[in-house]
C-alpha cells in the first residue's frame, strides 16, 4: 500500500477523503484511518492500495508517497 496526501477542511473524516478521491472501502486501509499531518495547512494522509493510488487524479491536489518498512538500529548485525 501507499500513502496519499489530500487537503481537506478542519474536522474532515475518512469518508470525506474517500468521497473526494473516489475510493472504495476495499481500496483503503480503514484501520489506519485519516491522519492529520499538518493542521495549519489542512493536510491529511491515508493508506490506499497501489492500484487505487495510480488511479487518483493528481489534479485533485493529492500526492502519492512510499510507505517503506522501518527497523530498529541495533544491535548492529
Amino acid at each position: 500500500m501507499l500513502l496519499v496526501t489530500v487537503r481537506l477542511p478542519p474536522e474532515a473524516t475518512l469518508t470525506d477523503a474517500m468521497e473526494i478521491l473516489g475510493l472504495s472501502q476495499e481500496e483503503v486501509d480503514i484501520g489506519y484511518g485519516l491522519v492529520s499531518i499538518d493542521p495549519a495547512h489542512g493536510l491529511y494522509v491515508l493508506r490506499v492500495s497501489e492500484a487505487a493510488a495510480r488511479r487518483i487524479d493528481p489534479a485533485t491536489g493529492t500526492g502519492v508517497y512510499s510507505d517503506p518498512p522501518i527497523e530498529p538500529f541495533g544491535p548492529p548485525r
Partner: peptide
C-alpha cells in the same frame, strides 16, 4: 511501539513508516 506493527505490507520484525506518521499525529 510502532516497530511492532502488523499492518498489511509489513513483517513481524519491523513496522511501516505510516505507523510512525500516526504516532507523530498522536504526539501532536
Amino acid at each position: 511501539p510502532v516497530l511492532l506493527s502488523r499492518r498489511q505490507g509489513g513483517s513481524a520484525l519491523d513496522g511501516l513508516l505510516s505507523d510512525a506518521v500516526a504516532a507523530f499525529a498522536h504526539l501532536r
